[in-house]
């Protein structure tokens, strides 16, 4: 970059003589104008009084804050016009404390503006660059140090050191391997399986085909989820199992993901969005469209839950369902593909 313009030297650019170079009277500060408080002792006293009133008010509010903190129970509520019902303690302590803090600030600034000197002063700036000689000697010294160390000439030493340093962070990576288990097949399987009954959540009521009117939509879980959670105390299974069950009239149901996966027009799809995993909640009966509230991916439940719009790339996996001998809705098997967001190994 030979054509860069260095700032060193006075003449920076070969520009025409423009007015920037003219030393017009504007290069001096405008004359300082005295304030009222500077010339009128009454104004100065008034400003002094104003400042001290603010500080004293602050002190008063601090005391009020302590009183309201102690006196107002935390479970007391008040109705504030325009703001609704709110915690009385929060309102009182916050207001008084806020005023106490604010008034100190207002007082200090009023003090600075009215009573402290307001004449602007000028300070000069210096170039940050050191002299050429100092720079040169520093460069020489670094070079000399490098030579003395033999870093450049002793290749074996240098390379072995670099090898050692390059390997040293690896244990940190190895340590990180224990931050969590290695993925196995968890992302491909859920609690659903052959014969697992559908239950509503959280009541755990078993579902029968008769419970469904045409157009009605129910959020459901596998019957074994409850026991699993009692045993495992985490929400991992629940993040994968939820399904939406909906009944459509046979002429509405244009396609399903597999032959015989519906039961008399009742279809079940994974509730977990295939985009980034939000539970999908918004269903429009007329169009059978299901909309994800997070990023608005839209799926058509009447057409194998294919993507109609939005950033999701894949349809919602369908759960093949049937009815057992007692007349309850059951799954024919687990999902035939992984539910939820894509991952690299999904293929």
């Amino acid at each position: 970059m030979s054509n860069e313009l260095e700032h060193e030297g006075s003449s920076i650019l070969p520009v025409q003589q423009t007015s920037t170079e003219v030393n017009t009277p504007v290069s001096v500060l405008p004359p300082h104008v005295l304030r009222r408080a500077d010339i009128d002792p009454i104004a100065a006293t008034r400003a002094e009084r104003q400042v001290s009133i603010m500080f004293l008010l602050s002190a008063l509010f601090t005391l009020l804050a302590i009183v309201s903190f102690i006196a107002i129970p935390v479970d007391q509520y008040v109705r504030v016009p325009g703001a609704g019902v709110t915690q009385a303690s929060n309102l009182a302590v916050g207001f008084t404390l806020g005023m106490a803090i604010l008034l100190i600030g207002l007082g200090a600034i009023h003090w600075a503006k009215k009573l402290m000197p307001d004449e602007e002063v000028t300070d000069s700036r210096h170039s940050f660059s050191s002299s050429k000689e100092i720079r040169q000697s520093v460069m020489e010294e670094i070079r000399l140090g490098g030579q003395e160390s033999g870093f450049a000439t002793r290749k074996i030493v240098r390379r072995s050191l670099l090898t050692a340093l390059a390997l040293l962070p690896l244990p940190a990576v190895v340590l990180a391997l224990d931050f969590g288990p290695t993925p196995k097949n968890e992302l491909r399987s859920t609690l659903w399986g052959k014969g697992v009954r559908l239950v509503t959540d959280p009541t755990g009521r078993l579902l029968r085909p008769e419970d469904f009117q045409v157009g009605s939509l129910v959020s459901a879980h596998p019957e074994n989820l409850h026991d699993w959670e009692e045993e495992n105390h985490n929400l991992n299974a629940r993040a994968k199992t939820p399904i939406l069950v909906v009944r459509m009239s046979p002429e509405e149901l244009r396609s399903t993901q597999g032959e015989g996966w519906d039961y008399q027009g009742i279809v079940a799809f994974s509730k977990v969005c295939t985009h980034v995993g939000c539970p999908i909640a918004l269903y429009e009966h007329r169009t059978h469209h299901l909309l994800c509230p997070c990023h608005q991916s839209t799926f058509d439940l009447a057409d194998s839950a294919n993507v109609v719009f939005g950033p999701a790339a894949r349809r919602l996996p369908q759960l093949p369902i049937s009815v057992d001998s007692e007349g309850y809705l059951i799954a024919q098997s687990d999902f035939q593909e992984p539910v939820g967001p894509s991952f690299w190994e999904r293929g």
Binding site: L91, V93, G94, G98, M99, L102, I104, G105, A108
Partner: peptide, 14 residues
């Protein structure tokens, strides 16, 4: 600083 702090506390109260 006190002004910023004070306003934040007031807003949080209200």
């Amino acid at each position: 600083f006190f002004i910023v702090f004070g306003i934040l506390v007031l807003v949080s109260a209200l």
